[in-house]
Amino acid sequence: MKKLLIINFLIIIVGILILPIVYLKNIFTLSFNGLVLIEITLLILTPLLIVTFRDEKEITTFFLNFSITKIVIILFGIIIFIIAYTEMIILGYTYFLTLSFLFVALFIALFGRGKHVAKIALAIAIVGGLISALYGFYVPTFGADTWRDVSISKQIIITGSFESVSIRHPAYPIPLVPLLYTVMSLSLGFSPVWSNSISGFAYLVLLPLFIYYQRGWLAVTRSHTILVCWRWLRPSYLYGQYGSYRRRTRC
């Protein structure tokens, strides 16, 4: 395994040096942004491979002397909402305060002291507070598929009939997602757009809980829970939870 590691290490070093030449000589179609991204990836990879050479030792962890309590979770969610919304009302966009607070809050969520579930809750509160502020000021950011789903839901609500839906996508034999929005809209009294937004929040809460409450082999992923949520064409937020691995005895 170590030999393989050394070979890979050498390949990566050569890659870092050769790729700029490939770009400059135009040997392969590679954009400048693509070159920067691949160089960054290789640069990240180099120290990681060096570290992998070392033998396993006792886990060394780093924590801030800040405990994440229920009050902290609620306060952080409210504060980021107020800061972001105030900046948007005054300036028309979020600015320095929002960025600073977002950085500090995520840093605390990752390195603060507290139970795993408290850290997850803090991350949800931060992202949830920020999204609430955005959705309060802007029309929710949806892609073509989501707008189609909410439009189908609107059709079902207005006409009162599933058969009257005028647009069908062949990829979805039964449009389950619009039906879900319709049920939510009818039961909660919201428009389909807001039903969709609420579903997004539910997803935001449930996915980390789903990862956290895993049992069996996949439970090791709880050691550092990572949540990647997807928005239109790109990942929007990535949250990592740094802590020691503890197997849960019961779920």
Binding site: T94, I131, L134, R231, L233
Partner: peptide, 20 residues
């Protein structure tokens, strides 16, 4: 990614830029 139009941040290609 969650702070559209912020002059201090980069411009994401899609994401939340150009919101209504």
């Amino acid at each position: 990614s969650l702070t559209p139009g912020n002059p201090l941040t980069g411009v994401p290609s899609f994401g939340v830029y150009g919101l209504i």
